[in-house]
């Protein structure tokens, strides 16, 4: 009978750490010029970064995650953050970081390159691409004519229990924030109350809404346009049961939210980091997003994807995306009416 030596247990953590260490691609860390926190996914962003590196010779260290979690991470890290650039999928998150004073002001030649309606007004971040709020509906049970043209039409008795929304999702809250800004607090709260009283189908995010509509589980829902284009690209547009309805320009229901980028305080002097943000709003960067994500380019002169209404037709007059950072008030409103 062999006696067991507990000492050998110690080998486990060491082996584990070695294994984990070996798996880390060491070369990336060696000469990276700056660190990017990407709130958008790796499959989308990495080819863009590879192109950037090829063109400029600048190595980038990227950390991928969900935008909200990345924002929470940046807020938690504060000035100790290793991040130089934050690429966010959502203007609200950019606003939250800017509110904490974690962004440094971008140079005018970058912020001036994009349509001003889709960027920050104080230069704390720059818009990169846009995506429109749309109504997705079940094309087998409804036609486009069955659908109201304004957001108010979807909280009537006729629509009771039929509409899917994701009130805890940032995209929905950006939309409600826009509603508050455009229609005023009282009107926004009335609409939200009407929605809450109308037995809405609550989802966690846009994708399950699209899935539910596409599977015929619910009749319609509020999402962003590009989710539909993505899935259509996956399974083929002709196989899509779900269809899109664009609401009237100027209605909060057709608000365009952006993907944007900002430079963190610690990177104020980092030319390479700045060069990356510049690349995002260059023709190459913009074209890449259009081709891959079906989102709106924000630099004038770059053509939008096929099948989309013109970006100009969706511009909400007198609306500043920077106002989307008043999320706390939106939260309180949604909480008051019992949606979150």
């Amino acid at each position: 009978m062999r006696s067991f030596r507990p000492v050998s247990l110690l080998a486990l953590p060491i082996a584990g750490l070695l294994l984990a260490g070996c798996a880390a691609p060491a070369e990336e860390e060696a000469d990276a010029a700056f660190t990017l926190y990407s709130g958008r996914d790796e499959d989308l962003v990495q080819p863009l970064i590879d192109a950037f590196t090829e063109e400029t010779g600048i190595e980038v260290e990227v950390r991928y995650g969900n935008t909200p979690e990345m924002a929470a991470l940046l807020l938690e890290e504060g000035d100790a953050s290793p991040a130089d650039v934050f690429l966010s999928q959502d203007a609200g998150a950019l606003g939250a970081i800017a509110d904490e004073g974690l962004f440094t002001t971008l140079p005018e030649d970058i912020t001036g390159a994009v349509v001003p309606e889709f960027s920050s007004t104080d230069g704390s971040w720059v818009g990169v691409t846009g995506r429109a709020r749309v109504v997705v509906y079940d094309g087998e049970t409804l036609t486009e004519d069955d659908l109201p043209d304004t957001i108010d039409g979807y909280v009537t008795e006729e629509w009771a229990g039929r509409l899917g929304v994701a009130p805890t999702n940032a995209s929905f809250q950006s939309f409600v924030t826009a509603l508050r800004v455009i229609e005023g607090e009282d009107a926004a709260e009335q609409w939200a109350q009407a929605l809450a009283d109308n037995d809405p189908q609550i989802f966690e995010s846009n994708i399950p809404i699209l899935t539910a509509v596409n599977d015929g589980v619910i009749e319609a829902g509020l999402i962003n346009h590009y989710y539909w284009f993505r899935q259509a690209n996956e399974v083929g547009a002709e196989n899509m049961r779900a269809q899109l309805k664009y609401l009237t320009a100027g209605d909060a229901g057709s608000i365009v939210n952006v993907t944007g980028a900002g430079l963190l305080n610690g990177a104020a002097e980092n030319e390479d980091a700045l060069a990356f943000i510049e690349y995002l709003v260059s023709e190459a960067g913009q074209q890449y997003f259009v081709n891959e994500t079906f989102e709106y380019p924000l630099v004038p002169g770059i053509p939008a994807p096929e099948g989309l209404p013109a970006l100009e037709s969706l511009v909400t007059p007198n609306f500043d995306l920077s106002d989307l950072d008043s999320l706390a008030e939106t939260q309180e409103l949604l909480a008051r009416v019992g949606l979150i």
Binding site: E69, A93, T168, Q173, L327, I340
Partner: peptide, 25 residues
Amino acid sequence: VAMMRFPTLTWGISAAYSASFDRAQ
């Protein structure tokens, strides 16, 4: 529970982080 759309406290916590960036809540 997120997949199954059953709102529990973890759902509420996630919402507080991701919707409102409200760490106190």
